[in-house]
Design a protein around this nucleic acid. Structure first.
Length: 441
RNA sequence: GUGGUUGUAGCUCAAUCGGUUAGAGCGCCGGACUGUGGCUCCGGAGGUUGCGGGUUCAAGUCCCGUCAGCCACCCCA
């Protein structure tokens, strides 16, 4: 039996890594456009960083073990506790609001399924120290733009937006109290997925009024804040922050990506305000991105009282969506120039010129074993080289080399002394041409 | 962790009722082609049919176990 990667872990072959790099590059580009700075932390953390306060939900699926020094450790399942620690340690010296992003590899120990592995990469963007609704708009806009920059539009994905402050006010108006609120959150979360009957029963058992449970079911029909206010006039005040956020997104021209959806709850207990998830528009895949406001978490984790919000966007579901929409960029050429020699005597000249080209910053390659020219050019094609240079005895006798444009069929004899400049110029031409014709990913 | 379902070449798949030496396309390697590539033609390598056991004269095919993928739970980075 061939050795395989552990279940839920991926090997990245060059084509896979090219896609991953494409996604990471785009994420970085967009995050820095928003003024975000990149940070990172250790992939392995003390177990207690996660079991202590961030909610017991996550503890059951931690990838944890005892290290050789007897320490209880865990591969990081999320970035927020690490972020909280880092911010807390230097909170006084950091100018607020803090705009930080990271692309950590995260781990969890659970049975894998499509779009859900034991390991994934996640763009984490957090805005710390800004309590106002414009901060929420900023974070949501960043998440939207991260996908737009990959070529996805409002017909491809949607932002489903809610606010726990508003939701909890509505639940209060329905007469729900105490632990009924948590049960109601779970019931709402299930609504989109059919199996909400069990949760509704649990609510009844907890003493929730029957009319309230019926109302919950209709929450999903409330598609904008005006409808919410019409149905719950007493909640008008609680809609204000979300309204301000939505108004800002409209002004940015991103309103068309956003839907109000009160069934978006988010599993983690620490969210205190805005919560949102990004889904593919056909709702065939798992969530691409999720986030929200967690104003009390830094206090709980790091002892610094700063409001915060952020999101995580995973690479796995996103890659599936890109594939589905035909937005995977084609294979790029691995080299600029391939050099071929005719006879054994040409080899030193091939090596010399190859190295000059490499020193000049060009990507150059040659056949490592002597073979027919035709074979070498075939190799040049398979490496997707733009140019080939053929060096033979006749060329050398004239003090020239043959330069071929592999895409066209033209070839011309160039003076050996002028090759470097000639080839560099051609390659630069290809590059700018590519930049003009290929969409800006 | 629970339940269901599927595993044949690197990839996509075929193999009649359980019946000869498990095949094809693509890809890969080589040749036609010793100073010119993409095309074409020819040839080759590549399989413990996921793994282990059982039934049978005979198992890719039926049964059991196990591992892995997928789906639904649990949960949701």
């Amino acid at each position: 039996m061939q050795p395989k990667a552990l279940p839920g872990f991926r090997d990245f072959y060059p084509a896979d890594l090219a896609l991953r790099a494409h996604i990471f590059r785009t994420w970085r580009t967009v995050a820095t456009r928003y003024g975000f700075e990149e940070y990172d932390g250790p992939p392995l953390e003390p177990l207690e960083l996660y079991t202590a306060k961030s909610g017991e939900e996550i503890a059951g699926q931690l990838y944890s073990f005892t290290d050789k020094g007897g320490r209880e450790v865990a591969l990081r399942p999320e970035m927020t506790p690490t972020l909280a620690r880092m911010v807390a340690a230097r909170a006084n010296g950091l100018r607020k609001p803090i705009r930080w992003f990271s692309i950590p590899q995260l781990f969890r120990y659970e049975r894998q399924q499509r779009g859900r592995l034991r390991e994934h990469f996640q763009l984490n963007c957090d805005l710390i120290g800004e309590p106002g609704p414009l901060g929420d708009a900023e974070i949501i806009a960043l998440a939207v733009d991260a996908l737009r920059a990959l070529g996805l539009g409002s017909a491809d994905f949607r932002v489903r937006l809610s606010d726990r402050r508003l939701l909890n006010r509505l639940l209060e108006l329905l007469g729900l109290r105490g632990d009924q609120v948590g049960l109601a959150h779970q019931a709402l979360d299930k609504i989109g997925r059919g199996e909400s009957a069990g949760r509704q029963q649990a609510l009844l058992d907890a003493g929730a009024p029957a009319h309230a449970i019926e109302s919950l079911d209709s929450f999903r029909q409330l598609r904008n804040l005006s409808e919410v206010e019409a149905r719950f006039p007493q909640a008008a005040q609680a809609t204000a922050p979300l309204r301000a956020t939505v108004t800002a997104l409209d002004a940015m021209g991103l309103g068309g990506f956003v839907d109000l959806d009160l069934t978006i709850v988010r599993g983690l207990a620490y969210y205190t305000g805005t919560v949102f998830e990004l889904f593919d528009a056909k709702a065939e895949l798992r969530a691409i991105c999720g986030g929200g406001r967690y104003d009390n978490l830094l206090q709980a984790l790091g002892g610094v009282d700063l409001p915060a919000l952020g999101f995580g966007m995973g690479d796995v579901v996103l890659a599936e969506l890109l594939r589905d929409r035909g937005l995977i960029p084609g294979e790029a050429s691995s080299i600029d120039v391939f050099l071929a020699g005719i006879t054994e005597d040409d080899l030193p000249h091939v090596l010399a010129l190859t190295h000059e080209l490499r020193d000049a910053g060009l990507r150059a390659e040659y056949a490592l074993s002597s073979q027919a020219v035709g074979k070498q050019l075939k190799l040049a094609d398979s490496r997707r080289a733009r140019l080939a240079i053929v060096i033979g005895p006749d060329d050398r006798a004239r003090g020239e080399v043959m330069v071929k444009d592999l895409a066209g069929k033209a070839q011309s004899s160039i003076a050996r002394d002028a090759v470097l400049g000639h080839v560099a110029g051609m390659v630069a031409g290809f590059t700018t041409e590519a930049q003009r014709t290929v969409p800006l990913w």
